[in-house]
Write a protein that binds this DNA or RNA. Structure first.
Lengths: 103, 103
DNA sequence: TATTTGTTTCGTATTTTTACGAAATAAAGA
DNA sequence: TCTTTATTTCGTAAAAATACGAAACAAATA
């Protein structure tokens, strides 16, 4: 980089982009909707696999992406894994998006 | 696909994913923040290039992505192109995200 | 008409994402 | 201990995203 420019994007801009990236695939939106609609009972991977025309391993990969973005968490209870929305980060994302669009 | 599953994602889930995809890169968040903060005057590509350590062509590509997602629009006034937030779609995205996170 | 100007498009390379089936895993039950 | 079960990880392939510099563009101006 020959001429470093004055400034670049902020931490919040990077955070927002990260959450947006997690939500940027329809299957992952579906998963998040599914989990958010079933907050009381949480869900197993298999519950969602029933509803989606994709391989189990592909679903697992989408769950991994959501988990690494922090939007969901999985409580291991073999051979099941009970997935839930990660409340703390969900609220952070909600706030970031609300701030972003509030203009 | 041997066993077509019962249902798949909805139109709104696809729309949300599409808007999220557009916002899923920090440079694009930066651009949208920049435009939203300057609603009165709108902006030229060059105004933003000053602030970002990326090639002009790369910025142009990000603008193209945002335009094709519908979040911005460009009024051609050669050799300038004045960019603005696309108000209608911005409101739609705002609403979709608000609905999504409201739980 | 040739030049300048701000921007986009093109060609290309690299990286990341998405997807699948096969194999691995880890606990429960036969 | 051998299966069964629900799920993840691995290996791989194909598609999409990201980035850059060079070339193209289109209007204004010299």
């Amino acid at each position: 980089m020959q001429h470093p420019k004055k400034k670049y994007y902020s931490i919040d801009q990077e955070k927002l982009a990260g959450y947006a990236r997690a939500v940027s695939h329809p299957v992952r939106v579906f998963i998040l909707d599914f989990l958010a609609d079933n907050l009381d009972k949480c869900c197993y991977s298999g519950d969602m696999a029933e509803e989606l025309p994709i391989a189990r391993s592909t679903l697992s990969e989408h769950l991994r992406v959501l988990k690494s973005a922090g939007l969901i968490q999985g409580e291991i209870n073999p051979p099941f894994i009970k997935y839930c929305i990660n409340r703390e980060n969900w609220e952070e994302a909600k706030h970031l998006f609300a701030q972003f669009f509030k203009r």
